[in-house]
């Protein structure tokens, strides 16, 4: 549905050149909710704006539904943009217009008939849960309500793609959840492909099916949300995952572990799918001559699949620990050492 081919964007300001995007390539399937995560300045915003050509790539191509965006005439581009809705971090609503007129604006612009507009806008108001608020002005609404207006406005032209520019970053956690629910509903009911950028990994966890991690203008890691959460490959991705799972051991605990005199090792055990329900730790303790101490444990759901994450300390002699680890690492369970062997 959306395909980035070696997209590079360079900003020039005087003598300085900033490479906001550095040869980015990846593809977003139809009907997917695709998340791009990165710290500020990673190039997410430029990437998103290359899709509807609010930013023109310096080189490379962006294809939406097979069409090269940069190859369109300005008339064709305007038509195409009606097929790509966009919502914003700061909503960007028209303050002088009512909620109803805000949602109707794209329809007014394409010269739609009054009665068609009325029916459509009323349906959208109901869909986003704002039926009672059509006559109000944006400054009478809460942040979450404003974003609902933004969403309804973006949907008014029946787009196939929805671009979300940090759509929940200005909202509190509870409102964020309700907006994410709404986006999920849009994706399901209208089969709209959603590309969202965010710096909040929990947004990715809650609604995305695939994720790309960006750093310094490059996509450094991409894959299904499950893959990236369970096996992050890069340091940045790992940090983003930790920000949600909070699976970092506190320094004080690490110090205590380091100073223990008994031979031990600390491992992270990742359970996925059905393995999450296994009594693995008690099996280890029974079968091998090791003591097991749980330092951290967390079970959550990713993409409707259970996902468990344990950090355990195994105490015993090295040989037994190694045997225990090999036993544990069978099947859908992954075991890896997290901090150095205390010596």
């Amino acid at each position: 549905m959306i395909r980035f081919e070696e997209v590079t964007k360079i900003y020039e300001s005087g003598k300085n050149e900033v490479k906001a995007l550095n040869s980015v390539s990846f593809e977003i399937e139809k009907g997917e909710i695709y998340g791009v995560v990165g710290y500020s300045g990673a190039g997410k915003s430029s990437l998103l704006r290359c899709v509807n050509l609010l930013e023109k790539p310096t080189s490379g191509r962006v294809l939406v539904d097979g069409e090269n965006m940069a190859g369109l005439s300005s008339k064709e581009l305007r038509k195409k943009r009606k097929n790509i809705g966009m919502i914003f971090q700061h909503f960007n609503l028209l303050n002088a217009k009512t909620v109803f007129d805000n949602i109707a604006t794209p329809l007014y612009l394409q010269g739609e008939k009054k009665n068609v507009i009325k029916e459509k806008v009323n349906n959208l108001l109901e869909f986003v849960g704002l039926s009672e608020h059509g006559h109000k002005y944006p400054d009478q609404l809460s942040g979450g309500q404003k974003q609902r207006v933004g969403i309804a406005r973006a949907l008014s032209t029946d787009p196939e793609v929805l671009l979300c520019d940090e759509a929940t970053s200005a909202l509190d956690p509870q409102t964020t959840s309700s907006i994410l629910e709404l986006l999920k509903k849009i994706n399901k009911e209208y089969n709209i492909t959603i590309l969202l950028i965010t710096h909040e990994m929990n947004v990715i966890r809650e609604i995305c099916s695939s994720v790309a991690v960006m750093e310094k203008g490059k996509v450094i890691e991409k894959g299904s949300v499950f893959e990236v959460f369970s096996r992050p490959k890069t340091e940045t991705a790992r940090r983003f995952v930790s920000s949600v799972l909070q699976d970092e051991l506190p320094d004080s605990l690490k110090n205590i572990l380091r100073n223990q005199d008994k031979n031990h090792q600390v491992f992270r055990i990742v359970f996925t799918g059905a393995s999450t329900g296994q009594p693995l730790l008690s099996q280890i303790a029974k079968k091998f001559d090791v003591d097991v101490s749980v330092l951290y444990g967390h079970v959550t759901e990713l993409q409707d699949v259970p996902f468990g994450n344990l950090v355990v300390q195994l105490i015993g002699d090295e040989h037994e620990i190694r045997r225990a680890v090999i036993f544990a690492g069978q099947g859908e369970v992954e075991v890896r050492e997290v901090i150095e062997h205390a010596s």
């Binding site: 809705g85 700061h90 604006t105």
Partner: peptide
């Protein structure tokens, strides 16, 4: 006027005149 509003108009496919 917030430049974001102009950006939103562009994203909607508004002509410069509109």
């Amino acid at each position: 006027i917030d430049p974001g509003i102009v950006e939103a108009a562009e994203a909607m496919g508004a002509t410069p005149w509109q």
